[in-house]
Design a protein around this nucleic acid. Structure first.
Lengths: 203, 203
DNA sequence: CTGTCCATGTAAGGCGTTACATGATTGT
DNA sequence: ACAATCATGTAACGCCTTACATGGACAG
């Protein structure tokens, strides 16, 4: 259901074609809601059928080009979007293949699970670097032309990804360290409950 | 594909029926791989058809009870599981409705998005309390009868959940604080790159 | 001359969710 | 009396992925 609301969110800013929506997804919310092309076209049809958007056909400029189909948000669509944005949702349940590998790691050797963990750590560090790039890009780039409040909310989603990736990196490093030392002793429960707060400046 | 390997993982420990597998899922890996009953039965059929497990029918004890169907892992199944456990996987892409709400929060009021964030924070804190309970339960409970190395790997998955929930809680608190103060200024990039390491003892 | 961009879609399949169905036994 | 437990499944639907299909324009 959320893909529909992501699309409504973009249409609330300006009219979009399916093609442009795909590019908008890839350029912005891809990290917390990837969407592929066929999914977007299908959902757009559904959105129009539900009366949440209307269709405007823009003829192709060159002689034999396909027409563009611009979707305009209706008032019903905007109302639906507003309602969705205000409604609290339950926690997402995540499926993490890596954790399954760790859970059953007793069946393989330490060296084997270490290789898997190190691979994941490298990927996580690449992701962190990628987030850092986006961050500096937003700050130096054209972001200042928008209202600070709007920029703030998009930056919040970036901070989320960053903090999640940092937590994952720390966990991986801790796990790799202990397995390398063959240190299988449990952690002190006092370090876990009550949990420690790690603030970033500004929070 | 991973549900199949979760089931193979359990079958590597002992034979299971669909019913018992459902209970095993709910009692252990539910937090990173929830599975429902019909999915488990369907996948078991497929696993048997693929020759990864064999079927033993155990007649119901009371007069008219259903027979239990016990699945035994074959050598092919064990080989497949081993291969899967050793293979690094790409990062999981997550879909987070909450982040979509934040991304488009410019369309609603601060009070409205605050309510959504506070609701999420309460849920995250409940989850943290739940993890803390599991943690003390494992430590005081029957865990010590198993090999420390096996206990260690299952505890690692719990630590992951804990660190992820802590990161989420910190992010939510930071966001709520700043929105309450109507402080939309961006964070200092130096605090993000290079990222700070927050060790837990033992890591 | 090969590939990428533009711009639209369809088809098939996998994975997950919800609801329905059976039917005796045990607990409140 | 009502619900939960035990134990198996089927049916239908929705979301997501991958691959296929069209066809001109333009760049290396």
């Amino acid at each position: 259901m959320s893909l529909k609301h992501a699309i409504l969110g973009f249409l609330a800013i300006q009219p979009f074609s399916g093609y442009d929506l795909k590019k908008a997804f890839d350029a912005s919310i891809q990290h917390f809601w990837p969407a592929n092309q066929s999914q977007i076209y299908r959902t757009l049809h559904q959105i129009e059928a539900d009366g949440l958007a209307t269709l405007e056909i823009v003829p192709g400029e060159a002689q034999d080009h396909l027409d563009r189909k611009l979707y305009h948000l209706t008032e019903t669509g905007l109302a639906e979007l507003h309602h969705w944005l205000r409604t609290p949702r339950p926690l997402t349940d995540t499926r993490e293949p890596l954790l399954m590998q760790v859970y059953f790691a007793g069946l393989i050797t330490d060296a084997e699970i270490l290789a898997v963990l190190r691979d994941h750590l490298a990927q996580t560090e690449a992701l962190l670097a990628h987030y850092a790039m986006i961050h500096t890009g937003v700050k130096t780039g054209s972001a200042s032309q928008f209202e600070p409040r709007l920029v703030f909310y998009t930056m919040l989603t970036l901070e989320y990804g960053l903090r999640a990736a940092l937590a994952q990196r720390d966990w991986l490093q801790s796990a790799i360290d202990r397995i390398t030392r063959a240190d299988y002793t449990p952690l002190d429960p006092a370090t876990l409950h009550p949990p420690v707060h790690h603030p970033l400046p500004g929070g």
